[in-house]
Amino acid sequence: MDELAAARRAMGHGSVPAGDAYTIEVRRRYDAQVDDVWDALTNPDRLRRWLKPVTGDLRLGGKFELDGDEHGEILRCEPPRLLKVSWLYGPDARPGTSEVEVRLAPGPDGDTEFELIHAAVVEEPLFPTYGPGAGGVGWDLALLALARMLTGGDETVEEREFVRRSAAAWGEAHLAAGGEPEHVAAAVAATSRFYAPDPT
């Protein structure tokens, strides 16, 4: 399956406690039951296989840290349908500036409809430089790993090509949301270089 083509992407506006935010949205279907997908999102042993190792107080109101710079608080947890967390980067991140919400719904064939919305107050120069691909490409890479874990697939994907196509797909979402073509093209190129720098 073409994992990039399996997802629908959109860019919009929303709000977080700190104020107005950009949103990136990914919707797709997983060929797995909703309880299995929920477990993949919340079970630390499985989460580390497709995202990163996680530590902390993994319950409503608890704080978590991923192996890296991401950390946050569990804001809503309604098994097996909805998980919402604050999603902050680095020790100096301002609380209330970034949130991720995942919604699951059972599909008609024992599958799962998956929706991820990441709302963030994005400061200069991040959004003007990279557009929605700044976070979107990272989520595409993570959701590719989630798909592989859920289905047991091990098909190889050339990462540079995947990143290039992901950045282009987020560029299309940016254009659909009213982005200026020249700005979008520059953001797609910058995002591709950031995630997959030229090896030469």
Rank of each mutant, 00 (worst) to 15 (best):
G14E: 01
Q33V: 14
G107E: 06
K84D: 10
V16A: 05
A5F: 02
V26M: 06
E70I: 15
R59G: 11
P53R: 12
E65H: 13
A21L: 01
Q33L: 14
P17L: 02
D92G: 12
G56V: 00
Q33P: 14
L66T: 04
K84V: 13
P95F: 04
G14Y: 04
P79S: 08
H13S: 15
L41H: 04
V54N: 01
R27C: 09
R103P: 05
I24G: 00
P95R: 06
G61N: 07
P79Y: 07
G12Q: 05
R76W: 10
R103M: 14
R48L: 15
V54H: 01
L82R: 14
L83V: 12
E25L: 09
G19C: 04
V85M: 11
E99C: 11
L41K: 03
A93R: 03
R94M: 12
R81L: 13
L4V: 10
D20Q: 13
D67E: 15
L51P: 00
V102S: 06
P17M: 02
E65N: 15
P106T: 11
L47E: 01
V100E: 03
R8M: 07
R103K: 15
A18D: 02
P53Q: 11
D20R: 15
P79H: 06
A40S: 04
V54D: 02
H71S: 10
V100F: 05
R27I: 06
P17T: 01
E78I: 12
E78V: 13
L82G: 08
R48Y: 12
A7M: 11
K52D: 13
T97S: 09
P44N: 05
D20W: 11
D31N: 12
